[in-house]
Design a protein around this nucleic acid. Structure first.
Lengths: 123, 123
DNA sequence: TATGAGGCACACAAAATTGTAAGTAATGAG
DNA sequence: CTCATTACTTACAATTTTGTGTGCCTCATA
């Protein structure tokens, strides 16, 4: 995630593809198993680390940390640290990320609908 | 991709999450580096294997094959084989996949816009 | 003095994804 | 008979992503 060997063919290809079209770029920013969920959860309100952890079943501290760091680096979430003890840190969507709201809403809807189709077909 | 150990924590978590919300399901179907691009390229017309390969820079035979197989299995593309020699096979979007068109269009737009912001900021 | 909370960091391990190189089948052209 | 074509498949290797477990800090509370 944060450690890609920059000399690998993998990375080189990725660079090329990111230039190639906006969607590749978007996929690169939002790809991974947790990012969209994290953003989605932040849609309605600012949340603390521990709150995110609670409402995203299955995510570990490490994954949450890593993804939040990348999201911050990529300008999708804003991190605020309060000088308290025990520490308090919260996360909110940036304007860039807010522009994605309709996208993940549609995706969520599609997911629900398509999942049902599938289940009916498979039964 | 096609080989996940079904007993791994990873898989177990994934199963749970897929039930958890439609978006997780969607991410699982569309995740990976190439799927959205493939679908995107099929948006306007049916394409053959070799045509896809030509217009998706950097993709290898293997990746294209694997992803197309999964997309087919997941009901997103339809595969047609013509009994010719040399073989001809083409791929088209299913109705399910067509429902995603607006989503990837927006994603592409967002990508282009956000990429520009970034480049300006980084310069 | 011991404990706990909150938000991580770090080392290590496992698993998933992606890439590379080679080969297959059928057939028509030369 | 040899070669080119097309859509793959297979074995293997590299890279990336994800998970596990432990530890740190700082102060209020028991």
């Amino acid at each position: 995630m944060s450690k890609r060997k920059p000399t690998s063919t993998n990375s080189i290809n990725r660079e090329k593809l990111i230039d190639f079209c906006g969607m590749m770029y978007a996929v690169d920013m939002l790809g991974g198993r947790w990012k969209l969920i994290i953003l989605y959860k932040l849609e309605k309100k600012t949340l603390r680390f521990s709150e995110l952890k609670k409402i995203i079943p299955g995510i570990t501290d490490r994954m949450l940390t890593l993804h939040l760091q990348e999201l911050e680096r990529d300008g999708l979430v804003e991190r605020t640290v309060y000088a308290e003890v025990p520490p308090r840190v919260d996360y909110r969507l940036t304007a860039s990320a807010q522009a994605l709201i309709p996208i993940w809403q549609q995706l969520e809807q599609w997911g629900v609908a398509h999942k049902q189709c599938r289940e009916e077909r498979d039964s």
